[in-house]
């Protein structure tokens, strides 16, 4: 289902997809890393959910349980020095980019040891050390930052790329169109990845998105547009790897629409009265983690004992992050006045 500018992406695997997937196919080690990364995202968020409902996490959290195939498919196709711009539903994106679980958990706890010293919170995390240039509380805003990051890469003469994640709801905001247009004009090394979970908060995709296909919008800007099964981490990886290859080679941006399922509410506490339960049940049957595990088992790369070891290690990492967050100090209140400017010698 890798079809450039396809107006209605076919849901089944096509020869083109398989052929391209082969060229960027991850090796055994990377497949296992992707499996572990998805499980790490899943367990981090499941535990964050429990802690949120236990009153340990202030504010709001937007979880990506069920969507790990997109986060990890993207993350695995990027280098550590590549950039990623993310969304309000961005914990998984940061974990997939290699961010510290401790600093992330501490941040969403509002602790001084958080990656943003407690100033950002769940919706505004960032970790520049792994090129994660920020989640964003405003939808599609990353889409206009991306061409500038791409321009910087071009002017500095490196072979980095920037991937920008956004939801299907964001694809209906102006900055999406402005950002894709400018990136295409500049042939900037940008990979636009729409994480289409079919719900813009509580509004269904078909009620918010004319034309149906977000991938098809790429055709209007003369760039490749690809729709993939976002519950298949390997399909996401193949599409992103191809887009990254193009971007690194100077062939400009691509748009990937990864269709996935948000298992939980828009935010924790969303009763989801607008949505049939069957949809989530169907989503669970397409669990991206179970799918990759089945693939790994089929290829004899993973057995039950190995899987248990992986799960155990992840459990330990997540619990370590929680312990770190719980034991970290809250910020001193007056630190609310720090970090606004690099240079502020004035008393005012």
């Amino acid at each position: 289902m890798v079809e450039e500018g396809a107006p209605t992406p076919a849901p089944d695997a096509s020869h083109a997809r398989i052929a391209r997937a082969m060229t960027h196919a991850p090796g055994p080690d990377q497949l296992l890393q992707m499996y572990a990364a998805m499980l790490r995202v899943r367990r981090f968020e499941e535990r964050a959910r429990e802690l949120y409902h236990a009153g340990r996490i202030p504010g709001f959290i937007h979880l990506s349980v069920g969507q790990e195939g997109v986060a990890v498919g993207v993350g695995a196709a990027l280098r550590r020095d590549d950039y990623l711009l993310s969304t309000h539903r961005g914990h998984g994106h940061l974990i997939a980019k290699g961010g510290s679980l401790r600093a992330l958990m501490a941040e969403i706890f509002g602790k001084a040891t958080g990656c943003c010293k407690g100033k950002g919170g769940s919706m505004h995390i960032a970790d520049a050390s792994v090129g994660y240039l920020g989640a964003n509380g405003v939808l599609a805003s990353g889409c206009v930052l991306a061409p500038g990051v791409g321009l910087s890469i071009q002017m500095r003469g490196t072979d980095q790329v920037v991937a920008v994640l956004f939801g299907d709801g964001a694809a209906n905001r102006g900055p999406f169109h402005e950002g894709v247009n400018l990136s295409a004009l500049w042939r900037a090394p940008v990979v636009f990845v729409c994480e289409n979970n079919s719900w813009a908060s509580t509004t269904a995709h078909e009620l918010s998105t004319a034309g149906g296909s977000i991938a098809a919008r790429a055709a209007g800007y003369g760039i490749p547009g690809v729709a993939v099964d976002g519950n298949d981490a390997l399909a996401v990886h193949a599409a992103v790897a191809e887009a990254v290859r193009r971007a690194r080679g100077g062939d400009g941006p691509s748009l990937i629409e990864a269709k996935t399922v948000r298992w939980l509410g828009h935010h924790e506490g969303d009763p989801q009265a607008y949505r049939p339960k069957s949809e989530v049940e169907e989503g669970r049957r397409q669990d991206p983690i179970a799918r990759l595990r089945a693939h790994l088992e089929g290829a004899a790369l993973l057995d039950a004992a190995h899987a248990a070891r992986v799960a155990q290690a992840i459990e330990a990492d997540v619990e370590d992050a929680i312990a770190f967050a719980e034991s970290s100090p809250l910020p001193e209140p007056h630190h609310a006045l720090d970090d606004l400017f690099v240079h502020w010698p004035w008393k005012d």
Binding site: G114, C115, C116, K117, G118, K119, G120, H124, A126, D127, A128, L133, G134, D338, D339, L340, F341, V342
Partner: peptide, 8 residues
């Protein structure tokens, strides 16, 4: 800059 704790 502020929201990201001075990282950028």
């Amino acid at each position: 800059r502020y929201m990201f704790g001075g990282q950028i």
